[in-house]
Design a protein around this nucleic acid. Structure first.
Lengths: 146, 146
DNA sequence: ATAACACCTAAACCTAACTTCAGGTCAAGA
DNA sequence: TCTTGACCTGAAGTTAGGTTTAGGTGTTAT
């Protein structure tokens, strides 16, 4: 059993955030002893899951739904699995999107390297994609397609 | 030369957003004819860059700085390049982070698949990482390391 | 000429996820 | 005793990135 201050310390987050999460219903089974929150192993594990789901881009209200499912027992396994599947698909799409952005950034880095070398953007502004060096062309294509 | 309405149409965004961007100084050289905004090729290109930088996680005020550098001419090539390099590093770190989250999600998907098959989490709760199937173990490791 | 549009502005409003504030309880140490 | 520190609450404040509203101008179609 941990106090809110200990948990805040363990997870490196402010106490106010933990109280906020509690208020949002993220710890549906948390005990209290004369008004004071007691974090058990269950809440610690919940907090680990919360961190993961937040990083996966989930909103608090959807995380609450998940926590409620956990309280409801084994009948909600399918919903919980579906939620993770949906998150997985979302995450894969995000990563693909970010790789395209990364290629754009790589292209821009190359671009300014050339501009600095030439002292201006004249040559680059006039350059058509077909004239790009082969490796840069590949980056250019992957960041400009679709 | 395009009107704000045409540009909004072209980029699939509300007119209010374009006005907001303008107010934030994202089009430092935009012309006006008797009060009415005229978007030239320069602003269209700026908007494409804005979309890219936003997707790369940049804040409006930093995008404004970039636009200002662009107005200042070739003396700011080094700053602009440095900005893209910094964004590139940031993006690479983000993608790495997201891949770790993705592995966590894959593990959770596997976990609930097992739980549904078994009807409960007993076997899984008792399972120590060393007992995980080899392929799942790899995912588990990559999502729990560091 | 009058209504419908597209444009303009400043200012208020919105949302998520917190954070800060003001005020209050309770236990332990000097 | 008194004051320090950890806990509690509800409510208000914060931030980013817009969106909405209210009120006004100017051009075009009927």
């Amino acid at each position: 059993m941990y106090s809110i201050g200990q948990v805040a310390e363990m997870f490196g987050m402010p106490v106010s955030t933990l109280r906020y999460y509690d208020k949002q219903g993220l710890f549906p089974n948390m005990e209290r002893v004369s008004g004071i929150r007691k974090f058990s192993e269950q809440e610690i594990e919940a907090l680990r899951v919360i961190e993961c789901l937040k990083k996966a881009g989930m909103e608090i209200k959807d995380i609450r739904k998940f926590m409620d499912w956990c309280s409801e027992g084994s009948s909600t396994y399918p919903q919980r699995k579906a939620m993770f599947e949906e998150r997985k698909a979302h995450m894969e799409a995000e990563i693909a999107r970010m790789n395209r952005i990364l290629d754009m950034l790589k292209f821009k880095c190359w671009y300014y390297e050339q501009a600095i070398r030439d002292g201006n953007e004249e040559k680059l502004a006039a350059m058509i994609p077909d004239e790009l060096p082969k490796d840069i062309r590949a980056i250019y294509d992957s960041s400009h397609e679709k």
